[in-house]
C-alpha cells in the first residue's frame, strides 16, 4: 500500500524507496535496460559519435496548460540532442522531491514523462530519487541527461560553422506560447486564457527535414531567452549578420494579446517546441514544405536571412517598416520558466 504523500523515507534508499521506484518509476518507464537495475545502465550504440546533454527542470508551477515538468524534462533533453543533428536514444532521469508532494501528482508527472518518451522513441534507462525536507525545494525538480547517436555528416550543425551569407532562417511555428502559458498558470487572479504550452519533442520533425535536404547549416531550439536570443547567437557567430522580418514570425493572437497586456516581447518569451534552422537558400522552400506536413510544423515559415553586412548584429525589420537592432536579453525575463 502506497502512502498519499512523499515522505522523507522515500529518499532513504530503504524499503520505501524501493516501493516508490517499483510502483511508480519502473511501472511507467518500463523497459529492459532500466529493469537490469544495475548501478549503471548498460547499452549498445551504433556508430562511433555520440551527443550527450543534460538539463535541469525547475518550472513553477509543475503543471501548466499544455504539459507538466515531466513532459518538459523529456522534450527539452530530446530537443537538445535533436537540434545537434543527433538521434536521441537514452535518457536518465533524476528526481529531487520535496517532502509532502502528493504521490498522485508525482505519478501524473511520471506517466506523462513515460508517454512523451515513447512518443519520442527514447528509453529512460537510469535514474535517481532524492527527497528533501519541506521548503528545501519546491515540489519537484527533475534532471534529465540524454545520449544520442550522431552521424558524422551533421557535425557542423551545432557549431554553425558552415553558415553563409544568404542562408535562410526558418522556424517551425508560432513563438512565445510556453512562456505565456506558464505565466498564465502562475497566480494571476481572474486571468483566464486558452494558451497552451508548445512543449513537444521535435526529433521526428527534425529527422524529416534532415532526410529531405542536405543544406541544414545550423539548428537550435529557442527555449529560455526566446527566438531573439537564438538569432543574436547566430549573428554573433563569425561576424555574419542576421536580418529578421517581424511580420514573418508567427505569433498566435491570444499569445500576442497576453504579451501586449503584460508588457512582454514575444520574441524573448520561452518556447519548448520551436526549432530555428539556418538552411541553404536553395533548400529553404523544401524545408518549409516538409515541416508543414508535420503537426508540429504547420505554421513553419522563413523569417529572415543571414547577411554579410550587419557586423555581427541581428537587425529587425519591424512590421510597420522600421529597422532596428535586436539584442540579447539582459537578466531573466521570467525566472523558473523551464
Amino acid at each position: 500500500m502506497m502512502e498519499k504523500n512523499i515522505l522523507i523515507g522515500h529518499g532513504s534508499g530503504g524499503k520505501l524507496t524501493h516501493t516508490l521506484i517499483k510502483e511508480v518509476f519502473f511501472r511507467h518507464f518500463d523497459n529492459p535496460l532500466l529493469l537490469q537495475q544495475g548501478d549503471s545502465a548498460l547499452m549498445k550504440m551504433e556508430g562511433n559519435r555520440l551527443a550527450f546533454t543534460t538539463d535541469s527542470y525547475v518550472v513553477d508551477p509543475v503543471f501548466f496548460p499544455g504539459g507538466n515538468i515531466g513532459k518538459l524534462a523529456i522534450c527539452g533533453t530530446v530537443n537538445d540532442l535533436a537540434v545537434s543533428g543527433a538521434v536521441p536514444r537514452y535518457i536518465s532521469a533524476a528526481f529531487i522531491i520535496e517532502e509532502g508532494l502528493y504521490l498522485e501528482e508525482l505519478e501524473a508527472i511520471v506517466s506523462e514523462m513515460a508517454a512523451e518518451a515513447r512518443k519520442a522513441g527514447v528509453l529512460i534507462v537510469t535514474g535517481d530519487t532524492k527527497v528533501v525536507n519541506r521548503g528545501q525545494c519546491d515540489k519537484l525538480f527533475i534532471n534529465t541527461s540524454g545520449i544520442g547517436e550522431l552521424d558524422g555528416k551533421y557535425l557542423h550543425i551545432s557549431s554553425g560553422e558552415n553558415i553563409k551569407a544568404g542562408d535562410k532562417i526558418i522556424i517551425n511555428g508560432p513563438v512565445a506560447a510556453h512562456g505565456m502559458a506558464v505565466m498564465a498558470a502562475r497566480s494571476f487572479e481572474g486571468f483566464d486564457t486558452d494558451i497552451l504550452s508548445d512543449c513537444a519533442s521535435l526529433n521526428g520533425l527534425i529527422a524529416g527535414v534532415l532526410e529531405t535536404v542536405a543544406g541544414v547549416r545550423f539548428m537550435r531550439d529557442a527555449t529560455r531567452g526566446g527566438l531573439a536570443t537564438v538569432l543574436c547567437e547566430i549573428a554573433g557567430n563569425g561576424g555574419l549578420g542576421v536580418e529578421v522580418y517581424e511580420e514573418a514570425v508567427p505569433v498566435e493572437s491570444n499569445v500576442k494579446g497576453m504579451c501586449e497586456l503584460l508588457g512582454f516581447d514575444p520574441f524573448y518569451v520561452a518556447n519548448e517546441g520551436k526549432v530555428v534552422m539556418v538552411v541553404d537558400p536553395a533548400d529553404a522552400e523544401k524545408v518549409v514544405e516538409k515541416m508543414r506536413k508535420d503537426p508540429l510544423g504547420r505554421e513553419a515559415a522563413v523569417i529572415g536571412e543571414i547577411s554579410a553586412g550587419t557586423g555581427g548584429r541581428a537587425v529587425l525589420h519591424t512590421s510597420v517598416g522600421g529597422k532596428r537592432i535586436m539584442d540579447m536579453l539582459a537578466g531573466g525575463q521570467l525566472p523558473r520558466i523551464c
Binding site: 493572437s253 491570444n254 500576442k256 512590421s319 510597420v320 517598416g321
Partner: peptide
C-alpha cells in the same frame, strides 16, 4: 479570438504608417 487585437493592429498598419511617413 480574432477581435482580440482590435485597437492594436490598426495602429500598426504598414500602409497607414507609410502614408504618414510620406
Amino acid at each position: 479570438m480574432p477581435d482580440q487585437m482590435k485597437y492594436i493592429d490598426e495602429f500598426r498598419n504598414r500602409d497607414i504608417v507609410k502614408g504618414l511617413v510620406k
